[in-house]
Amino acid sequence: MITIKGLSKIFHTKDQDVRAVDDLSLEINKGEIYGVIGYSGAGKSTFIRLLNRLEDPTEGSIWVDDQNLTSMNKGKLRLARQEIGMIFQHFNLLWSRTVHDNIAFPLEIAGVPRAERQKRVNDLIELVGLKGRGGSYPSQLSGGQKQRVGIARALANNPKVLLCDEATSALDPETTDSILDLLVDINEKLGLTIVLITHEMHVIRKICHQVAVMEQGKIVEQGEVLDVFLHPQRQVTKKFVDQVMGDPEKETSMQVIKNNYEAGEIIRLHFVGESTNQALISEISRKFTVDVNILHGKITQTQKGAYGTMYVQFEGEQDEINRAIHYIQSTSVEVEVDPDA
């Protein structure tokens, strides 16, 4: 659906050249919700503006549904953009227009007849959960309602792709979840490909199928969300995973454990998918002569299944502890033994 090859963007300033996006390549499949995460300055906002050529790339190509956006003239690009909707962090609504008229605006520009516009707008108002608010002005709406208007407006021309630029960053957690649920609903009902950028791992965890991690203009890690949660490779990715899992830094947590639990073996368990439902700890207690002390743990849900991590302490004879660890390793639960604990 979307193929990006060797994409770069260099901004020329008085003092220096800034490479905001650096030789970036990605494949995004049709119907996916693809998340791009990075801290401020990583280049993710520039990247998403390149996708519909609000910014022109310095190098590289962008293909959307077999069309090369980077080689199009302004006329063809104007038509191609009708198939790419975009929602923004601060809504970008027309404050002098009602909800109805904000949503109708791109249809007016596209020359859609009035009767057809009316039906399309009413359908979209219902789709995004704003029935009865068509005559309201943006100043009369909450933040979440404003973003729903932004989503409806982005969907007006029946786009194939929806770009989300920090779409929930200005919202409170409860409203964020409701907007994310709406995006999932739209993805499933319309088969829409969604690309979103964020600095919040909660957003990635809740709705994305795939994730790419950006740092200094580059993609440093990418893959299925569950895989990235389970095996983060880069330090920046580990920090993002910790946002959701709530784990303290491993060095700090292990130091606390060492200070308070002198005996036994400290083990970190990773649960994925169906393994999160296993009564593993009680099985270990029944099968082996070891005492099990749960020190820290959390389970969270991704689009591809549950993911959990838990620190436990095993006390008993070393041979029996080794047998218990070997048993866990024979299951779908992954085991990490801290060598210094």
Rank of each mutant, 00 (worst) to 15 (best):
S178V: 01
N187Y: 07
V213E: 11
A156K: 03
L190C: 08
S142R: 13
R153P: 11
D165G: 11
L182K: 10
V195L: 12
I204Y: 01
T176A: 08
Q210V: 02
V213L: 07
I197N: 10
D181T: 11
M201R: 09
K218I: 04
I179L: 00
M201K: 07
Q140W: 06
E174W: 00
Y137F: 15
L163W: 09
G143M: 09
N187M: 05
V211F: 01
H199Q: 08
V211N: 01
E174M: 11
N187G: 05
A154M: 07
S169K: 11
V184I: 15
D181C: 02
P173L: 09
G217K: 00
Q145E: 15
Q216V: 00
G150I: 04
R205E: 06
G144I: 06
R153V: 07
T175H: 06
G191E: 10
D177C: 02
M214H: 05
V184E: 14
I151P: 03
K189A: 13
P173A: 12
H209V: 00
G150F: 07
Q216D: 15
G150R: 05
P159D: 08
E174F: 11
R205V: 00
K189E: 11
Y137T: 10
G217S: 10
H199D: 05
S178T: 13
I207H: 05
E200Q: 15
M214F: 10
D172Q: 08
D177A: 14
A152R: 13
T175D: 06
Q216F: 11
L163E: 00
K218P: 08
M214P: 07
S178P: 01
H202W: 00
M214S: 04
I197T: 14
M201G: 06
S178Q: 01
D165E: 09
E166F: 04
H209R: 13
Q216R: 15
R205K: 15
A156P: 01
G144C: 14
T198Q: 14
V195R: 03
